[in-house]
Write a protein that binds this DNA or RNA. Structure first.
Lengths: 138, 138
DNA sequence: TACAGTAATGCAAGTCAGTTACATTTACTT
DNA sequence: AAGTAAATGTAACTGACTTGCATTACTGTA
């Protein structure tokens, strides 16, 4: 699991290593924010990787189906995506400037056992996002 | 604040008491799930209240702007809405049948002071949703 | 290294949620 | 009851995302 490159990651989930997929993976790895598809498309265009918008949607959906990425919703009219390999964390979303910060600690996982005990609901994932104002917008 | 009816609630936020707005408020009050706009439109149609879909979108947006309702996102491609007057709570979303249960307790508010201390981010709201399988789908 | 087969892509068109502009109607104040 | 600002209807539009189908490109095998 360690020391593997993008190509191997794709192989592990049975996806062919096309240039568009490799570029999307690389972009996600070097970016510290969840990205929307428009941003991914822009990146591909700026890097001489010919890819139709439809392809970007298909790629990110496959990544999500295979568990490589996860959907993030920040009350915009679209989804964002980030690598699942990022440790459990949440986002601080500034409602003024749109900046997105990470909040690394997460104690929410601890609640999941209680939920099963109290409500017989088996949690497989959760989302926790905070909305407010970042330091420079206060 | 107590003993007031839908008409008064609208007056408090400077919205005229039209039949469509009263019906939407009433629907939200009697429903225990966050509702999407399509559901609201269906309700209006089934209750002889003539209202264009555009009107339903406008109504729910105004309610949200005025703080009467809040947006909820459950990783669908749309928003849901519920009354802000509901006590702080979160949702358990069954990924098999789509059932939405409430989870009444919420300790997340306690984290908000820490976030301000550690990240200088001023939280005004948060969303916390759990995804998994309900009892009958496990 | 070439080939075949399957998976991935491009293109065009379509869906669905939500918005905007503008003319008409309605609620509410006086 | 009348005047006015707010609310609505209609039509057209945007943006995110999907689908069908024909073409192209990986990759496992020889």
């Amino acid at each position: 699991m360690l020391n593997h490159n993008c190509k191997d990651e794709l192989k592990e989930v049975n996806l062919k290593a096309t240039s568009a997929r490799l570029a999307v993976l690389k972009l996600l790895e070097k970016t510290d924010q969840p990205l929307d598809v428009a941003t991914i498309i822009g990146y591909l265009n700026n890097h001489q990787i010919k890819a139709d918008p439809v392809t970007a949607f298909r790629i990110i959906n496959q990544f999500t189906d295979k568990g490589l990425t996860q959907k993030v919703q920040l009350k915009e009219g679209k989804f964002r995506y980030e690598l699942s390999s990022k440790p459990d964390h949440h986002h601080l979303v500034c409602e003024s400037c749109g900046r997105i910060e990470d909040m690394p600690e997460c104690q929410v996982g601890l609640l999941e056992k209680d939920i099963f005990k109290n409500k017989q609901f088996k949690v497989s994932s959760h989302s926790l996002e905070f909305f407010g104002k970042c330091l420079s917008c206060q």
